[in-house]
Design a protein around this nucleic acid. Sequence first.
DNA 1: GCCGCAGACAATGCATACAATATCGTCCAC
DNA 2: GTGGACGATATTGTATGCATTGTCTGCGGC
Lengths: 226, 226
Amino acid sequence: MSTHGRTLPRRLKRESSSEQVAEHIRRLIMSGELVKGERLRQEDLAEELGVSRIPVREAIIALDREGWLDFEANRGAHVAGLAADDIGDHYELRGLVFGLLARRVVETATDEDVKVLSALAAEMKRTADLVEFAVTNERMIRQIIRVAASPRLTAALLVTPAIMHHDFYEFVPTGRKNQEAGIAAFLRAVKQRSADAADTAMRTMLRRQGQAVLAAFTASGVVGGQ
Amino acid sequence: MSTHGRTLPRRLKRESSSEQVAEHIRRLIMSGELVKGERLRQEDLAEELGVSRIPVREAIIALDREGWLDFEANRGAHVAGLAADDIGDHYELRGLVFGLLARRVVETATDEDVKVLSALAAEMKRTADLVEFAVTNERMIRQIIRVAASPRLTAALLVTPAIMHHDFYEFVPTGRKNQEAGIAAFLRAVKQRSADAADTAMRTMLRRQGQAVLAAFTASGVVGGQ
DNA sequence: GCCGCAGACAATGCATACAATATCGTCCAC
DNA sequence: GTGGACGATATTGTATGCATTGTCTGCGGC
């Protein structure tokens, strides 16, 4: 139909209000404006964002399942918060999982697969925009999953509790550099068909990411001493 | 008062309609009544369950985040489905994660912790009711997490994409036996302070559970050849 | 015959309104 | 003065209805 006045960049996929609200809350948590234990009132958020409570509720439910909030029936939603240990464990687990995936990639990837992965890595290196970088990175992750593992459950396991969200690189200054270096090492290992090296590359990268996240979040006060 | 004659056992915690709807849908998927790709219409479900569309929507959002459904804005929700590989990978990853947790338990558990774990294991052995068994099992898992790891992220990572839900043992005949045997082996390892043995016990148990789940789901037609 | 577009229909997205539940202060009995 | 029950208030939970968006069908142009 005729174009709406919406002069937003309007990406391919329009986001629902719920998703925008969820995004907003994630940012509040990552930026430290919402601290652990703090209660979120549906009506306040709704008014603040100019929507009704329905999309707010839907966002809260999604964030509860993603681990950002604790949402108990009739008792409201509270910020789950991040402790230093949480972050360490999170990245240790991610390291385990991606290490396993990396091994699988070495074992099963065809030349064509490798080509696709290389192309994505090059694209990441090329782009200047952080959001685009994050999106490409996500595509890379999906490609790795596609090559190496069953799509659905692995995706659920990895993507769901995503600390590394689209905004991730905004909040963690050295995140991009680490990521690129790790990906490069991983690709080298794949081309040399060395499962051990691929595994190690992933684990190392994720350990460094964990340290960087911890540093960034500690500096900004997002993680307290628990 | 409530018109619904639902005289459910009504446990301690009253569940919201949303959660009941979610539970219902999970069962439909696990039992094979809903197959991969099938579309869920909000209004149909609402009418079928005697609620409005709001709790149905909320359930769909939760299940999307848990990985059971693919929910796209304005395009409805589709059953994500289970492939054989999904299940294998899921349990392999669970094995990795719980193996790590098991190591931590050996390293950090106090005598008191061990006593609590033993008590829970005994309770699991004692109970006849499958639901109670599952609940106790979940308490055990939570206890392990409490002892061994940071609570929040680990819980989010483990609990969220729960194939092993409360009904799990209904659908997988040998599930309970495997679980008990694995727990017993794990506890022996903990008492002997052997991290390797604890790790192995967990991985072995989960590998067996994976095989059992696959067999059960294949038999019932829940997993197709993809 | 095939493609593109307009309109009708179907399904979802969200706002408003009301019901159910928790929380907290107050009062009363002891 | 303390503990517990009761009620007022705040907050969440769900139903209903309208707005928006996607999908399908049939028509006209190429």
